[in-house]
Amino acid sequence: MSKLLLDVVNLNKDFQVKSDKTFFRKPSSIRVLSNVSFKLYEGETLSIVGESGCGKTTLGRCIVRGVNASSGQVLYNTDRGEQVDFLTLKGKEFKSLRKDIQMIFQDPYSSLSPRMSVYDIISEPLLANFKLSKSEVDEKVTEIAQKTGLNVSYLKRYPHAFSGGQRQRIAIARSLISRPRLIVCDEAVSALDVSIKAQIINLLKDLQQQLQITYIFISHDLSIVQNISDRVAVMHLGKIVELATVESLFEHPKHPYTEALLSAVPEPDPHLKKDRIILEGEVPNPANPPSGCHFHPRCAYKTDKCVQQEPELQPIHDEHFVACHYANELKLRGVTNES
């Protein structure tokens, strides 16, 4: 197994929400992430999937410190062999490691400054983190532009002159210029056309091989997740309910929520009728989550135990973890099997 790169331990995030009913009422809090824990290994792609609002993007932003986690640890193993809590680093120590963890944002239109040229956008991380001469910066920007499929002659142009796919290549180049060890891809292809999606996914995979990068890939598109991932974590209402290798999760899901998500994956054969699982009821309110298992109001397999007792994320066999009381008993349908 590859070396451990990141160990996320009991990560929590609360957002304060002020009540509209009265000015003097204290703001209430909504727990968006609840005791999220997982390990990430060098060179792998771990995908985070789930419905909108489940906490995928918040998890990614907490890891890169785009937002501050309420509690928990993100233990990062540096290239010097030291383990540090990335969330508690300050000053020069934080700046020296900040370049190691980067992020690609969802919207290629709003994530690039319209006032900066492509050259300035890509070179900015170099100027912030390294002391380089103008010729050294030019060389590195040209190199990464070529690796990401950008026309070097267009580097002096501005983002408005480019398509969505080209803008996302610019964003990828910006994230790679500091040679990070980990990149969080937050819905990095969801705003792109289907043909452009395939190009960007292939680009990310090629760059991973060339530069030995580790990805956390946040997405709601399970067909893309199946293509790019080594492991997949399924989130529901701020918790990871299943974590497994991509083959194990897609072929033999062990959580009813995962089964429902997989049933929505489109089939390439237009004549094939798929038996999709429609979850009844409404998505639970994170400000007032249900008792016991948070999925039980929409689960077809629930019992009294599910209503009363919250399941813990437990291993059922090697590299497959599930938060379900009946994970070993249920026979759930995956994408490639009929059982």
Rank of each mutant, 00 (worst) to 15 (best):
K3Q: 14
L4Q: 07
L4Y: 02
L6I: 09
L6R: 01
L6E: 08
L6G: 00
D7I: 02
V8C: 07
V8D: 11
V9N: 06
V9H: 07
V9Y: 13
V9K: 11
V9P: 04
N10C: 10
N10L: 13
N10D: 15
L11S: 00
L11V: 01
L11W: 10
L11H: 03
L11R: 00
L11P: 01
N12M: 06
N12Y: 09
N12Q: 02
K13V: 01
K13T: 04
K13A: 05
D14F: 13
D14W: 15
D14I: 08
F15Q: 12
Q16N: 12
Q16H: 11
Q16A: 15
Q16G: 07
V17F: 14
V17A: 07
V17E: 15
K18Y: 08
K18P: 03
S19R: 00
S19H: 03
S19I: 03
S19N: 11
S19L: 07
S19W: 05
S19T: 05
S19Y: 04
D20P: 06
D20M: 09
D20C: 01
K21T: 05
T22R: 12
F23D: 10
F24G: 02
F24I: 07
F24H: 10
R25I: 12
R25W: 15
R25K: 13
R25Y: 12
P27A: 09
S28C: 05
S28K: 06
S29V: 13
I30L: 13
I30V: 12
I30E: 15
I30R: 11
R31I: 09
V32N: 08
V32K: 08
L33E: 09
S34Q: 09
N35Q: 13
N35H: 03
N35K: 08
V36W: 12
V36Q: 11
V36D: 10
S37P: 08
S37D: 14
S37Y: 12
S37N: 11
S37Q: 04
F38H: 06
K39M: 13
K39W: 14
Y41G: 01
E42V: 00
G43K: 04
G43I: 05
E44V: 00
E44M: 02
T45H: 08
T45R: 06
T45M: 12
L46D: 05
L46A: 04
S47Q: 08
S47G: 08
S47M: 11
S47Y: 10
S47V: 10
I48Q: 03
I48G: 03
I48V: 03
